[in-house]
Design a binder for these strands. Structure first.
Lengths: 333, 333
DNA sequence: TTGAAAGCGCTACCAG
DNA sequence: CTGGTAGCGCTTTCAA
C-alpha cells in the first residue's frame, strides 16, 4: 500500500496526496476529502522511512539511558517525551545497562536513524564517541558525562555539593561511623559521589570512621552491599547511598538484621525519586530536578523560536537537600 | 556522508561497499579492508531509513505499553528486548499512559515504521485497531486485550483465578470487611480484576462486606484511593489492590493513619514486581510471569527456525499466589 | 568477485 | 491549486 495506489484511487496525483496529508490547508477541500477517503478505505499508512529519507529531516529525538529500571532515568525521559510530543516530535529510547559497548552501538544506531537530536543520560562514556557525535553534527545533550562542543550541550549536577550536605548533616547529628553504598565505582558520576563522600568525611572533626561498598544498581544491589558491609563487622550508624533506588534495598537488609531506621542506623538516598517518599521510612535524600533536566534537554535539542540555540553550553545544576524520616541522631554506644 | 562517498574513497563501487558492510564474507578480504578503512575515516553511518526502504525489511520490533512507570510493563519490555538483541533485532517502545488516543497514534506510528513485529501490552483497546492491524499483516502479540487472528497472537492472564485465590485466602483468615483498590475501572484487564473481586467476595460465607475505589495507577493513586476509602468511614480489615505498584501507596497511607500492616489491615498486591519484596512489609501478591510473557511475545513475533509460527493462537497464563508478610489473620473487633 | 542501474515510497521543486 | 518528476541513500538483481 503506497502513495501511488492512494493517488490512483482518489483520482489525483501522488503530489496532491502528499500535500493533502502533510499540508492540508493548501489543497482544495473537495480534493482533500477524496484523498482522506481513499486513505481510509485503503487503510494506508505512510512509510515513515521513505518520508524521512525524502524529506531529509526527522521528527524523532533519541534518548540513551543507563538503566531504564531506575526511576531517575524514567522521570527525565517522561518529561522529555512530554515536551517532544507537544512539539510534534517523538522520542525513542535505548538502554545501555551501564555497558560501554551498548552505549557505542546505541549511539551508532541513533546516528543511523538520523535523529533530530540526541539526549545521552548515562554514566559510562568513551571519549571517542564525543568526536563521533561532534562530526555527526546532530544536536546532542549530555547529562553527567561528555564535553561541551559546537553541537553538544552539557548538563552537570554538582554531586559534591549534594554529598557534602548529607555528610555535614549526619555529622551534626553525631554520626561517627558512616558507610557509602554505591554502584559502578569506575564510572564518572557515581564515583564522583563516592569520592565526594570520602573527601567530606575526612574533613570531619571529631573524625568519622568510614567505609565504601559497591554493588549493582537496584534494590538487590543495595541489599547485597549492605549484607557485605555488615559482614565485615563494621557497624555504621549512618549509610549514605548513591541513589534512592539502592537505598530501598539497604533499608530492607538493615531491617532483616533487626536494625531500626533511623534509631539504629540512619540512611540517606539521592535523586528524590517518587519512591523515596513511599518507602518506609521515607528517605532523607537530595533532590535532582529531573523534570527540569528533561526540559532543558528538549530545549537544547529543539530550540523554539523564542529560545535561541546556545551551542557549546555547560549547565550546572545545584541539588537540594531533603530531610525525611530515615535519618536521626546517632545512636549512643 | 553516504555510500557514494565511501565508495569513491575506497575506490570501489557502491554495490561493493554495501556488500562489504552487510555480507562481508562475499567480498575479497583485501577489498573489504579498504572499505572498512574508508568507513572509519569518513565516520560513515549508514542511513537506516534508506536501508529499510531499499531492503524492504526492518529488524525493529515495536512495543506499546500503558504505563512505563509501572515496573510490570518494564519487566516485559526488558525480556523482550533481551531476546530481540540476541537475535539482532532492536525494540522501540511507545507509552500510552492509558489513553486510547495515544494507543491509536502509537499503533499508526509503528505501522508507519513497518516494524517486523508489534507487541501491544496495554489495557485500553479499540476494536477498530484490531482490523487495522490485521490488514497490515504485521505479526502482532496482544497481552490482555485483543482478539486472535491470522497474524495476531493473544496472551491472556487468568485474573479471575488470581483474585479468587486472594479473596479465599483472606476469607480463610477471618476477614469480613474487604476493599478493592483499582485504577481505570472502565478498562478491560483492570475491571476484570475488580469484577472478579466482587464476584468472589459475594460468594463468601460468612458474608463479607466490601467496597471498591479507583484512582490513577501508581503510588500516589494508591495513597489517594486509600484516603478516600477511609474517609467514608468504612474500616476494612483487608485491602486487595489491583497491582503492587498501587499497593505500595496504600501501605503508606494506612501507616499515616496509624494502622499497622498486617495486624490492623491486611494488604495484597498483584503482579509480584521486584518492589513487592522490598516494600515494608513485603507484599502478599500474585505472580504474573513477566519474563515468560516477554519471551512468548518475542517467539510469536520472530519465530526461530525450531519454533514454527503458530498463527491465531491464544495463550492463557495461570498466575501463582505468593504469600508474604502483608497479610495475616483478621483483627478481632 | 565486482560494477551498473533499477527501484524502495515519499517529498519538494518547477510548471502549468 | 494540481501534476510531473528528480532525487533522498541504500539494496539487489543482472552482467561482466
Amino acid at each position: 500500500m503506497n502513495l501511488a495506489e492512494v493517488a490512483k484511487r482518489a483520482g489525483v496525483s501522488m503530489a496532491t496526496v502528499s500535500r493533502a496529508l502533510n499540508n492540508p490547508s493548501i489543497v482544495k477541500s473537495h480534493t482533500r476529502a477524496r484523498v482522506i477517503k481513499a486513505v481510509a478505505e485503503l487503510k494506508y499508512h505512510p512509510n515513515l522511512h521513505a518520508r524521512t529519507l525524502a524529506g531529509g529531516r526527522s521528527r524523532t529525538i533519541g534518548m540513551i539511558v543507563s538503566n531504564m529500571e531506575n526511576p531517575f532515568f524514567l522521570d527525565i525521559f517522561r518529561q522529555l517525551e512530554a515536551d517532544a510530543l507537544a512539539a510534534n516530535f517523538e522520542v525513542i529510547v535505548a538502554n545501555t545497562d551501564y555497558q560501554p559497548a551498548r552505549l557505542v552501538s546505541s549511539i551508532r544506531l541513533m546516528i543511523g536513524r538520523r535523529v533530530a537530536g540526541l539526549a545521552v543520560v548515562v554514566s559510562e562514556m568513551d571519549p571517542y564517541l564525543i568526536d563521533e557525535l561532534t562530526d555527526s553534527s546532530i544536536p546532542v545533550v549530555f547529562h553527567d558525562v561528555g564535553t561541551a562542543r559546537e553541537n553538544i550541550t552539557n548538563i552537570r549536577v554538582n554531586y559534591r555539593n549534594g554529598i557534602e550536605k548529607i555528610v555535614r548533616y549526619l555529622h551534626s547529628l553525631g554520626h561517627e561511623r558512616m558507610a557509602f553504598v554505591g554502584h559502578h565505582a569506575s564510572l564518572g558520576p557515581t564515583s564522583e559521589r563516592q569520592t565526594s563522600f570520602s573527601r567530606a568525611v575526612v574533613q570531619c572533626s571529631p573524625p568519622v570512621e568510614f567505609r565504601s561498598v559497591t554493588h549493582a544498581d537496584g534494590f538487590e544491589g543495595g541489599r547485597l552491599a549492605t549484607r557485605e558491609l555488615l559482614a565485615t563487622g563494621f557497624e555504621p550508624t549512618a549509610i549514605v547511598c548513591v541513589n534512592d533506588f539502592m537505598a530501598v534495598g539497604v533499608l530492607r537488609e538493615l531491617r532483616e538484621h533487626g536494625l531500626r531506621i533511623p534509631q539504629d542506623v540512619a540512611v540517606t538516598g539521592f535523586d528524590n525519586i517518587k519512591l523515596s517518599e513511599f518507602s518506609s521510612p521515607p528517605l532523607t535524600t537530595v533532590h535532582i530536578p529531573r523534570q527540569q533536566i528533561g526540559h532543558i534537554a528538549f530545549e537544547c535539542l529543539v530550540p523554539g523560536r523564542n529560545s535561541p540555540r546556545i551551542p557549546g553550553r555547560e549547565i550546572v545544576i545545584d541539588p537540594e537537600f531533603v530531610v525525611r524520616e530515615s535519618t536521626g541522631p546517632a545512636k549512643k554506644k
